[in-house]
Computed example of a mutant assay.
Amino acid sequence: MSSTPISPALPVKLAEIVDDFQAVDERERLQLLLEFSRELADLPAEYGKHPELLEQVVECQTPLFVKVDVADGGDRVDLHFSAPAEAPTTRGFASVLQQGLAGATASEVLAVPEDTPDMLGLTRAVTPLRMRGMGAMLMRIKRQIAQQLAAQGAAAS
């Protein structure tokens, strides 16, 4: 039932999530996205108290904010999102990325293909604007990683 081939560039957890989406029919994919929306981890208290540390993804229809933490010189990436409960599609996409990229290395995340949102098989069930929102989330994540790696490299020099 696979509609889009899965890229070998996907980190293992993200590849498993893509497999899960592709293993079910279109209607069930929306239900799966809703399940992911309920699993979006809460924002750590340090970011809840300092929302200015998060970056808004303005391409999303609802207010979504992201913060990426790159630890151990790029050996581990953690994603943090803030999205309203009444935005299940946005929360679902954020949760897919959060769960799929959690603990991956910076180089693994930077190698994630730009068309990864399309691999979920939701392009006919979700509006193009929402699909672009998930793509924008991935773009912001990659940019924040690149910036942090550059800053870490400069600090080490």
Rank of each mutant, 00 (worst) to 15 (best):
L34N: 08
S3F: 14
V70K: 00
G135M: 07
S3H: 13
H80S: 11
Q99T: 13
F36H: 01
A15E: 11
L32C: 01
Q61D: 10
S2C: 11
I6C: 03
L34D: 07
L53F: 00
P117L: 00
L120V: 07
R140T: 14
A146V: 14
P51M: 01
A23T: 11
L97M: 11
V77Y: 10
G103Q: 12
Q56W: 12
G133T: 07
L14R: 10
D69C: 04
M1I: 13
A83Q: 09
A71K: 09
T123S: 12
I6E: 03
G73M: 01
A104E: 09
A104V: 14
A71W: 01
E52W: 02
P11M: 02
A102C: 11
K142H: 14
A136E: 06
V109K: 08
A150M: 13
Q22L: 15
D19R: 15
V96E: 00
A111T: 12
G48I: 05
E28K: 11
D25E: 13
G73A: 06
A136Q: 01
D42K: 09
L138G: 01
A111Y: 04
L79E: 03
T89C: 09
Q22T: 13
Q22G: 12
V112L: 05
L54A: 13
H50Q: 15
A154F: 06
I17A: 05
V77A: 05
E35I: 05
A156M: 11
D78N: 06
E26A: 14
L129N: 08
E16G: 11
T62Q: 08
L64W: 03
L53D: 04
V58M: 14
P8M: 09
Q61F: 08
M1C: 11
T62N: 12
Q144H: 03
K142D: 15
M119V: 04
L33I: 03
S107A: 05
V68I: 04
L30N: 05
K13I: 10
D118I: 08
